[in-house]
Design a protein around this nucleic acid. Structure first.
Length: 410
DNA sequence: TCGAGAAGCGCG
DNA sequence: AAAGCGCGCTTCTCGA
């Protein structure tokens, strides 16, 4: 593994090029979407007034909390003493007003965070059919070595919902070009498997089997549960959080062939996971011990350090234990997330050196997006994939590639 | 009127 | 015993 310093120096000019090239935004598509979103916001607002009997600002937690108190709805309170009005809290109650509040908030998020700023920023650099976005890459912001993006934060653009994909669809390839995406599958779990040398995980990956199906079989849970559970365990998720995640995913009461996912089951599942994949448990413990011996410094494989003074807090009282355990989770996360970031940077360097026809535009942690001339798309995509393909201590790291005319279709 | 902090939510 | 990690950005709220 190349050192983290060398990777930083080698990727610097690549990100510079990425920013200069930028991404083309279609004004027609974006403005049509904006009109849709605004119309739907009006609808939800009307719905709220209709069902609540008066106007309500869905964005004001105080306003929503006051109305909930009037309706004799209970719930958790924030540190500031108000009723919690987050998505989790509102979904506890069955009420059309709360449904509309959540819908409105989702739409408002799209409008104010993604659509309006993108239009505004793209207007600074007009181009045929729209404008160009030049994200500012922050290469020294994230302590794990990941990159961050500002103005706008393209790494946080929506992808999980239909409306979200419509936002991404406004980012299009220039005329005569195609967009290519190559994303590593399960980069962080694979990194964990390699670093922990856990026999079971290594076997799953070496034989090319689906991790989450295997975990599901090992623990007797559906694939979706196994996925949440596995990703959570890598970073120290607790029973409570796992339970909340499963509730949010709507798998709280499973079918009869599957255990019921109450809080106790979640605790037991986490415990069992670390028994079955004991190599990961060992790596977590060893990583923390090593960092303590190194004076509180956690290191990635490439040698990027993060100082975690909290590792030396002693005692079990509040908030000492909480802070120490937080530092321990950060310690392990630094190793996995940071090493994965180094894998990605190394891949970018190889692609830059060996596939000059590919013009990168975005790096999204485990994914590379860029443009290529239309007539060469298939061929160049294959070469990008070949350059990203690598073997990390016996485990293959491969990418899924796709070609499309807009970001949303990748 | 301005700025900081809280709450909330988007992503991998 | 109990525990998600890493970010950026927006609106609301409250005090200077």
């Amino acid at each position: 593994m190349t050192s983290t310093e060398e990777l930083d120096l080698a990727t610097w000019p690549i990100f510079s090029k990425m920013s200069r090239r930028g991404l083309l935004v279609s004004f027609d598509k974006m403005e049509a979407l904006l009109a849709d979103v605004q119309a739907q916001m009006e609808e939800q607002l009307a719905l709220i007034e209709c069902f609540a009997g008066r106007k309500l600002n869905p964005m004001s937690g105080d306003d929503v909390a006051r109305w909930m108190v009037e309706q004799h709805m209970g719930g958790k309170h924030t540190k500031g003493g108000r009723l919690t009005t987050g998505k989790q809290a509102l979904q506890q109650h069955e009420h059309p007003v709360l449904d509309a509040v959540l819908s409105y908030r989702g739409l408002e998020k799209l409008e104010s965070t993604f659509i309006l700023p993108t239009l505004e920023i793209a207007k600074r650099d007009p181009a045929p059919g729209g404008g160009i976005i030049h994200p500012r890459w922050r290469l020294t912001k994230v302590r794990s070595g990941r990159v961050a993006s500002e103005s706008p934060n393209l790494l946080a653009f929506p992808s999980r919902t239909e409306m979200g994909k419509r936002v991404r669809s406004c980012f299009i390839a220039r005329p005569g070009f195609k967009l290519i995406s190559a994303d590593y599958s399960q980069l962080e779990p694979r990194t964990s498997a390699v670093l922990s040398q856990d026999e079971r995980l290594l076997a799953i990956y070496r034989e090319g089997r689906d991790l989450y199906i295997e975990v599901g079989t090992d623990l007797g849970v559906p694939r979706t549960v196994a996925k949440t559970l596995t990703l959570g365990t890598f970073y120290g998720m607790g029973g409570q959080k796992l339970f909340e995640s499963l509730v949010a995913e709507g798998v709280v009461q499973g079918d009869p062939s599957v255990p019921v996912f109450d809080l106790e089951t979640c605790d037991a599942l986490l415990k069992r996971w670390f028994e079955v994949y004991s190599g990961v448990k060992r790596l977590v413990d060893e990583t923390v011990v090593a960092a303590r011996q190194a004076g509180g410094w956690a290191y990635t494989v490439g040698g990027r350090g993060r100082l975690l003074p909290g590792l030396f807090l002693s005692g079990w009282g509040w908030p000492l234990a909480k802070l120490r355990e937080e530092a321990e989770r950060q310690c392990f996360n630094h190793l996995i997330q940071g090493t994965a970031a180094e894998t990605m940077k190394a891949a970018q360097v190889r692609v830059d050196a060996n596939v000059p026809e590919f013009m990168p535009q975005l790096q999204i942690h485990d994914e590379l997006v860029g443009e290529v001339r239309e007539d060469r798309a298939e061929e160049v995509a294959a070469r990008v994939a070949a350059q990203m393909h690598t073997t990390f201590q016996g485990v293959e790291l491969k990418t899924d590639v796709s070609i499309a005319d807009c970001w949303g279709d990748l």
